[in-house]
């Protein structure tokens, strides 16, 4: 999986949780989750759980505490892809 494919997976998972739809439509690696997409801590946990479900991985808060941008999430997904390529590839193919 390359960065663009990971970005595609990440944006697909983030979309339902973003409060700022305009920013979501134009989201890229630099988009800030908390400020730009107006995702709060509860939504952020929902997002992590959605990643767990879609990618078949377990995420703990320590792995996620420094995530600030879409690009940070992409890097996390790329790490998961290295560990579990099949699950991430499945997530990419799902709508």
């Amino acid at each position: 999986m390359n960065e663009n494919e990971a970005l595609e997976v990440v944006l697909g998972i983030l979309r339902p949780f973003a409060r700022n739809e305009q920013q979501m439509a134009a989201a890229n690696h630099a988009t800030r989750l908390w400020q730009d997409l107006q995702i709060n801590s509860a939504r952020f946990i929902d997002i992590l759980l959605a990643f767990e479900d879609r990618l078949g991985v377990a995420i703990d808060e320590e792995q996620a505490e420094d995530i600030a941008t879409v690009g940070d999430v992409v890097q996390l997904v790329l790490r998961f892809a290295a560990e579990n390529p099949d699950a991430v590839e499945r997530a990419r193919r799902e709508p």
Binding site: W34, Q35, Q38, S41, E61, I67, A68
Partner: peptide, 10 residues
């Protein structure tokens, strides 16, 4: 701060 990120909330 509500938008401070997970670390601040932890």
């Amino acid at each position: 701060r509500q938008g401070a990120g997970l670390f601040a909330h932890i």
